[in-house]
Nucleic acid binder design. Structure first.
Lengths: 231, 231
DNA sequence: GCCCCCAGAATATGATCAAATTTCACCTTG
DNA sequence: CAAGGTGAAATTTGATCATATTCTGGGGGC
C-alpha cells in the first residue's frame, strides 16, 4: 500500500526540460523549426522511420506531428504514402504574396494600435540583432531574427486567428527562403523594419500597414527572383 | 446518422467503394463533414474514445484526424488534453469576416476569369438546389448547398493555397452557422449568389468580387447577430 | 520484356502507462 | 445535527509503445 510514488514529485522545481508538454508537441516544434529555418530543403523526402531515429522519438508522436505539418502546408502528401517538403511554383509564390500582404499588413495595423513603448523597444532589439546577422552573413541567424520580428509583432495584434494564419504561411515558404538566402546572401534589403518601427512610434497605423506590405512584397519578390533560375 | 462500423473492408464487387483511401482519411472526412454541417455544437467536448466507437474506427486514425482538425482550427486543444469544438467570440467573427472577404473575393475574381459556360451552369444548378432547401426550411441542405456553391467556385480559381485557406476558415464558423440557422431559420438573404452568377456571365470580374464580398459580409453579419444574444 | 515474388516502409490494432477529473467518505464548523 | 469543504481513491481519458497487416516499388526469373 505504501508503494505509491512518493519520491517522484516532492519539491522538485525541475531544472529539467519541459516534462509538461507531450512528445508529439515537442516533435512538432522541432520539425517546425527545421522547416522554418531551412534545415529541410524543398523537394526533400521525409520518412517516418527516419525521423524516429533522428529525433529519438517514438513512431506515434512522429506520425501525429507529420499530420499536423501536412495540414499546415509545411509538408506535402505525395500520393503514395510518401511525404516531402513542397516545392513552390511561381503561381504559389504569387498566391502567398497576395495573402501575406493583406493579412500581415492588417496584423501590423492592429498591432500598432495596441503596442506600448516597451513592446516597440523589444521589436527594435530584434531588428538590431537582425542587422548584426546580416552584417555577419549569418543566414540562419537572419532567418530566425526575421521570423522573430514578425512573430513578436503579430503577437501584439490581439488577433489570434490571423496570427495563426500568418504563421502557417511562413511554413510554406521557409524552405525556399533558405535556399534563396543561401544562394544570394542576405543583402539587398532596404530595411522596411526601420520604417515600421518609426511609424509605430509616431502612431501612424496606416503607415505601419503600408510599410509591412512593402516588406512582404520585397521578401516574396526576392524568393520569386531567386527561384526563377533553377528549381 | 448512425454510421455503421466496418466501412473499411467493403466487398470487392464494388471497385469504387474506396479500397484506396486510408482509414484516417475517411475519419477525417467524416469528422470534417460533421463539423461543417453542424452535427457538432460549439463548446461540445470531443473525446478520442467516444469517436472510436461512434465511427467504428481504431484509435490511431481517430487521433490523427483530430490532430489535423486542430491544426485546421476546426477543433480546439483545451489545455489539459481535452479537445472541444471552439466557441466564436465577436472578435473571432470580426477576424474571420476580414480574412474571408479578402480571400474569397480574390478567389471569386480569379475564378471568374477562367470559368466556362458549363462550369457556370453547374454553379447555377447548385444555387437552385440551395433555393429549394431554403424554401423547404431544410437547414442541413442549406448548409451543404451553400458550402458546395463556394467550394465549387473556388475550385475553378486555380489557386490551391487560397482555396485551401478558405476551406479551413469554413471549418471555423460551421458549427456557429448551424446554431444560428437552427435558431432563426435560413430566410433573410437577398441572394448574392444570383449577382455573382450574373456578373460572371457578363464577364465582369470586379463585379463578381464585390458581390462575393457582400455575400461573405452578410453571412458573417448574420452569424454575429445570431450569436449576440446568448452563447 | 513481362510477370511474379520479395523487401521495406507505412498503416492500423490493442495493450499498457500516465494524468486529470470526478466521486465520495470523513472531518470540520456553524 | 446538518451542511460544506478537503483529501485521497477510482474511473475515465489521453499518450505511448510494440506488433501485426497491407501496400508500394523494385529486382530476379522466365
Amino acid at each position: 500500500m505504501s508503494t505509491t510514488k512518493t519520491a517522484a514529485q516532492s519539491g522538485q522545481t525541475a531544472p529539467d526540460e519541459g516534462p509538461k508538454l507531450p512528445a508529439h508537441e515537442i516533435v512538432y516544434q522541432q520539425l517546425r523549426a527545421q522547416i522554418l529555418f531551412g534545415e529541410l530543403a524543398p523537394g526533400q523526402a521525409v520518412t517516418i522511420q527516419g525521423l524516429t531515429e533522428a529525433l529519438g522519438a517514438g513512431m506515434t508522436p512522429v506520425r501525429e506531428a507529420i499530420r499536423r505539418l501536412i495540414s499546415d502546408g509545411a509538408l506535402m502528401f505525395q500520393g503514395n504514402r510518401r511525404v516531402s517538403v513542397p516545392v513552390l511554383s511561381p503561381a504559389d509564390i504569387d498566391e502567398l504574396s497576395f495573402v501575406r500582404k493583406t493579412i500581415e499588413s492588417e496584423l501590423a495595423r492592429r498591432a500598432s494600435l495596441r503596442m506600448n513603448a516597451v513592446q516597440i523597444a523589444r521589436l527594435e532589439a530584434i531588428d538590431i540583432a537582425l542587422d548584426r546577422a546580416i552584417s555577419a552573413g549569418d543566414v540562419a541567424g537572419y532567418l530566425v531574427q526575421n521570423y522573430s520580428f514578425h512573430s513578436e509583432l503579430y503577437a501584439c495584434a490581439n488577433a489570434p486567428i490571423m496570427a495563426d494564419l500568418a504563421d502557417r504561411l511562413w511554413l510554406r515558404f521557409g524552405p525556399s527562403l533558405r535556399v534563396v538566402c543561401g544562394r544570394f546572401g542576405t543583402q539587398s534589403f532596404p530595411d522596411r523594419h526601420k520604417d515600421i518601427i518609426e511609424a509605430m512610434r509616431r502612431g501612424e497605423p496606416e503607415k505601419v500597414a503600408q510599410a509591412m506590405e512593402k516588406d512582404v512584397a520585397q521578401g516574396m519578390e526576392q524568393v520569386s527572383q531567386g527561384l526563377g533560375g533553377t528549381n
